[in-house]
């Protein structure tokens, strides 16, 4: 545990002093992430049209469960790669935007979560809540981060 803390702490220190060693994926993984996310859409469609969830017999790794795993893994991995791929020039301003976007995404996510918890009292809804929380923080982060970068580029003054 102590070693793990040390490792995290070291990562933190490196982040502050050297922008190159930030723990982010290479830039090209953004497109891979986008591809994975797009691939998951038809899989979801198959799930819905063939009523695969009706095959659920409560067993682990049955057809319904496998489809669930595939869709969730594709979607979350896709969003994760989009969210945490390095910008072409990842400098300290981008790092700052990244952090503040992450903060807003978490704020918004918990607001949505609390509202959802207040207005649900049905057991079945909790599964939807879990699903919502799988993608909501990442998607919110991506949208806010891209919006901030767009705003930054718009605000540039001519030389």
């Amino acid at each position: 545990m102590l070693d793990f803390c040390k490792l995290c702490f070291t990562f933190g220190l490196i982040n502050l002093t050297d922008m190159k060693s930030q723990f982010l994926f290479p830039t090209w993984t953004r497109w891979l992430g986008l591809a994975l996310f797009l691939v998951h859409l038809p899989v979801i469609h198959i799930w819905d049209t063939y009523h695969i969830h009706s095959y659920d017999d409560g067993q682990l790794f049955n057809l319904s469960h496998l489809f669930f795993i595939i869709t969730v893994v594709l979607m979350v991995l896709g969003l994760f790669l989009i969210a945490f791929s390095r910008e072409r020039i990842e400098d300290e301003q981008i790092y700052q935007l990244r952090l503040s976007s992450l903060r807003w995404a978490i704020f918004a996510n918990y607001l949505i979560l609390i509202i959802c918890l207040i207005f649900t009292n049905n057991k079945a809804d909790y599964k939807d809540l879990l699903r919502l929380n799988l993608w909501a923080p990442l998607l919110l982060f991506i949208i806010i981060f891209r919006w901030k970068i767009y705003r930054l580029n718009r605000s540039l003054k001519p030389e």
């Binding site: 300290e92 301003q93 981008i94 930054l152 540039l156 003054k157």
Partner: peptide, 28 residues
């Protein structure tokens, strides 16, 4: 701005925002 940005390894946007006093650079 682009040449300066390349010299110190940041984006041109960062130099631009520093010049227009919208971004305070780190000590480094």
């Amino acid at each position: 701005q682009a040449e300066l940005a390349e010299l110190i390894g940041v984006s041109r946007q960062t130099i631009n925002t520093i010049e227009s006093n919208k971004y305070v650079p780190s000590t480094v």
